[in-house]
């Protein structure tokens, strides 16, 4: 199982980026963001942002700190209400849909600063992700035996077989999340998002603060998820080496505006992107920075 995963990862990472994304470009878009504007008082977080998330691929939103990436995620989750514009999910507008209903529609996410529930074990945190797909009401819960137990056991089985095993966290399932190291907490959060049976999985800086080994593990998991689960991945990430390696489609935000969108190779050579990152048009040094090979080493 593990060996197999490693193989697919290497292939995907090693393959030509342009070719890998070539096939996803034809697919229809699962998420479309149209002219989104969001401001808090006088501070504009997003200004007329439009981009699309093609179905089945890995789309990454990059940009300098404070560019509005997490605000973008919060708009999609329904936590922020944009003043203008709309978000279309599977062709339908999400305007007015409350966050829990969006979760039920298949929009799952992880958070930049881990948002696990510290009072629960790893297993309970993951099972919580399946909340929207369960039905037991208060009375069934009080009685436990009967429908509630049947449902709990079905979820437990699903979580154990497809998620805990997949993400290699079986050794920590009984532990309270507060006692886990950072890298594992990130992985548990990913597990919880997978338990939501997502159609769009939004990852907010999945490898921030990780060491190289943890980053490689996470990249492998993300690629495996794309291969094995019927899910579109939308990611915010600063680690350029990883972004360029695994993304099929990239949108670049700067000061709340989309300044470029397209294939990794195109974005890498876009003059505006280079200026946003370096504040200069010195192409050579920037290429050096954005080029995965030299970065990873």
């Amino acid at each position: 199982m593990i060996l197999e995963c490693d193989l697919t990862t290497t292939q995907a990472v090693g393959s030509d980026v342009g070719a890998a994304s070539g096939k996803t470009e034809h697919n229809k878009n699962i998420l479309e963001i149209h002219n989104l504007s969001l401001s808090f008082g006088g501070v504009t977080a997003l200004r007329d942002v439009s981009f699309r998330v093609p179905e089945q691929g890995i789309t990454t939103v990059i940009g300098p700190n404070g560019a509005g990436k997490t605000s973008m995620f919060n708009c999609i989750s329904g936590f922020y209400q944009p003043q203008q514009g709309s978000i279309h999910y599977q062709g339908k507008p999400l305007t007015g849909v409350k966050p829990p209903a969006r979760a039920a529609l298949g929009l799952a996410r992880t958070f930049q600063n881990i948002a696990l529930f510290r009072g629960m074990t790893v297993l309970d945190n993951i099972k919580l992700g399946a909340h929207v797909h369960m039905k037991s009401g208060l009375l069934a819960s009080l009685a436990y035996f009967g429908p509630a137990r049947r449902e709990e056991m079905a979820v437990r089985r699903e979580v154990e077989r497809h998620i805990i095993d997949f993400l290699e966290i079986d050794h920590i399932r009984r532990q309270p999340v507060a006692s886990l190291p950072y890298g594992l907490q990130k992985r548990v959060e990913l597990a919880r998002a997978l338990a939501m049976r997502p159609k769009v999985l939004m990852l907010d800086e999945p490898v921030a603060g990780m060491n190289r080994e943890e980053k490689e593990d996470m990249a492998r998991f993300i690629l495996d998820i794309r291969e094995e689960w019927d899910v579109t991945i939308l990611m915010v990430e600063h680690d350029m080496a990883m972004v360029m390696d695994i993304s099929d489609h990239i949108a670049v935000l700067n000061f709340g505006q989309v300044i470029a969108e397209g294939l990794p190779a195109d974005v890498q050579n876009n003059a505006e992107v280079i200026e946003a990152y370096l504040g200069t048009r010195d192409m050579d040094s920037l290429r050096h920075k954005l080029n995965p090979e030299s970065e990873v080493a």
């Binding site: 969006r102 979760a103 069934a140 449902e151």
Partner: peptide, 29 residues
């Protein structure tokens, strides 16, 4: 009966609200 509640989705939702109500809502509660 109270113990039962805390081994099902209802109890997990209660604890999630206590620990982080905003992310609980985004997770579908």
């Amino acid at each position: 009966a109270a113990k039962n509640v805390f081994r099902t989705r209802t109890g997990r939702a209660f604890i999630a609200i206590r620990d982080r109500d905003i992310s609980a809502e985004i997770l579908g509660i």
